[in-house]
Write a protein that binds this DNA or RNA. Structure first.
Length: 414
RNA sequence: CGGGGCGUAGUGUAGUGGUAGCACGAGUCCUUUGGGAGGAUUUAGCUCGAGUUCGAAUCUCGGCGCCCCGACCA
């Protein structure tokens, strides 16, 4: 992608109506555009980041035998009335049609997926079954905040599984929890599995995946020695207590952002929709259901918060909009320009996403923009490098500089 | 939803009752080209409504919007 043709441009100043670091940086760098409080559009750079995150999540869900589907986000009101959500879930957007009909906007999809499951899972042989989607969710938050971290419209991956037995569910639940941690690790974050309230629909605990960051809105307690971690809303221990699990570490208080959660829904929804299957003896049984969410756009916001520095964003290579930022310091020098053009074509030919700064600007502006945009590796081409016959490779995070020959560069790529 | 703050060119800001200014951006031209360069020139604005006043960006009331704290949060 030629930067001169990029749909967006960077800004020197942060908008005055955002205080969250993620929103300031993402807007300045041209990743997102704010529509209203809690609602953002994603521009080319932002869309690329989202697609990368989605693909990481998609692979992981496929790995745990989830099948991707795409459910409606405009919902009939009936299933919501059937589960009680219509009256009990205050974040549910309710829509009045110009006709007498009422609709809901999907804030979660149990009301849609359970009736679908009921139609296809009629025998124990059809179970387990696990489906997921990546799509928009709508929640009528009283107060949207923290940039893209708590919006009224956001992108979520939500998976739902149905199981014939509690044991089968438990096994699957653990599998998903494990793969979730890998997802966050791939995104450059360390997440902790945190015990939390199950919400209004279950007595059981749920598990939240928390990333330690001051930008988060949850208070957690984590053990300094083991993986034990509890949301303070359900914590029996206090800061400084000895960990109840390993009995070695002490519990440490921290701010954290919830990037995902998993719920054991039991048989609630199956019962609400009278979803039964025939077991091996021919008896009707309610399946055990689980749901597993990952906030895709929130995850992007948390990465932006947690990994940025005073110059701008610092994307891990797994989610970065481009692998390389080719910065040409031609300054009117035809030789350098031609060299950069050729290099851009050669990298592009390999199918490697590269942003090519071909604009006629001073080096300082180009570097400042590159730092702000936060692509992990800069390739700098100028008179200097042309004379030495080498490429200057600069890591965005560490600032580490490597001088490599063109052959070495393409050698490592191939 | 309760409390607080704020709405001025595309962006960031100055202007507390009397001619709306600056910087950045954007356009044209010239010079410059390894960390936001310089000059010339052009462009573009007071959130909406009502009121007070000879006169309102400025004062009063109301609406709308945005941010923050709290409450809330499948």
């Amino acid at each position: 992608m030629r930067q001169s043709a990029l749909f967006t441009r960077t800004r020197r100043d942060a908008p005055s109506d955002e205080t969250a670091k993620n929103a300031q940086l993402l807007i300045r760098a041209g990743y997102v555009h704010k529509e209203m409080a809690g609602v953002y559009s994603y521009l080319p750079l932002g869309t690329r980041v989202l697609q990368n995150i989605e693909n990481i999540v998609r692979s992981a869900m496929n790995f745990v035998d989830g099948q991707e589907i795409r459910m409606a986000t405009l919902h009939p009101s009936e299933p919501w009335k059937q589960t009680g959500g219509w009256d009990n879930i205050d974040v549910l957007f309710k829509i009045n049609s110009r006709t007498e009909r009422e609709y809901a906007l999907g804030q979660s999809e149990e009301e849609i997926v359970t009736p679908i499951g009921k139609e296809y899972a009629v025998s124990y042989k059809d179970l387990p079954m696990s489906v997921y989607q990546i799509g928009q969710k709508y929640r009528d938050e009283l107060r949207a905040k923290s940039g893209i971290m708590r919006g009224r419209e956001f992108t979520m991956k939500d998976m739902y599984s149905f199981h014939a037995t509690q044991e089968d569910f438990d096994t699957y639940y653990e599998r998903v929890k494990e793969i979730y941690l890998q997802i966050f690790s791939l995104c450059g974050l360390t997440a902790r599995v945190t015990e939390a309230s199950g919400g209004s629909f279950t007595e059981k605990l749920s598990y939240e995946f928390m990333v330690l960051t001051d930008a988060g809105e949850d208070d957690i307690l984590y053990c300094t020695e083991c993986t034990h971690c509890v949301n303070v809303e359900v914590a029996k221990d206090k800061e400084g207590d000895t960990c109840m699990k390993c009995e070695k570490g002490t519990m440490q208080a921290a701010k954290a952002a919830e990037v995902a959660n998993v719920f054991d829904l039991g048989q609630k929804y199956a019962k609400d929709f009278d979803f039964t299957f025939k077991d091996a003896e021919g008896n009707d049984q309610y399946p055990i259901m689980g749901c597993y969410g990952i906030g895709i756009t929130r995850l992007m916001g948390v990465i932006a918060e947690a990994l940025s520095d005073d110059k701008g964003l610092v994307w891990p290579h797994t989610v970065a909009p481009f692998k390389f930022h080719l910065v040409s310091l031609a300054g009117g020098n035809k030789e350098v320009e031609e060299y950069a053009e050729k290099l851009y074509e050669d990298i592009s030919k390999l199918g490697v996403p590269v942003l090519y700064d071909d604009r006629e600007l001073h080096a300082g502006e180009k570097f400042a923009d590159a730092d702000l945009i936060g692509i992990p590796v800069k390739i700098i081409v100028g008179k200097k490098t042309l004379e030495s016959g080498q490429l200057e490779i600069v890591a965005r995070g560490s600032g580490k500089v490597d001088m490599v020959s063109r052959e070495q560069f393409f050698g490592t790529e191939a």
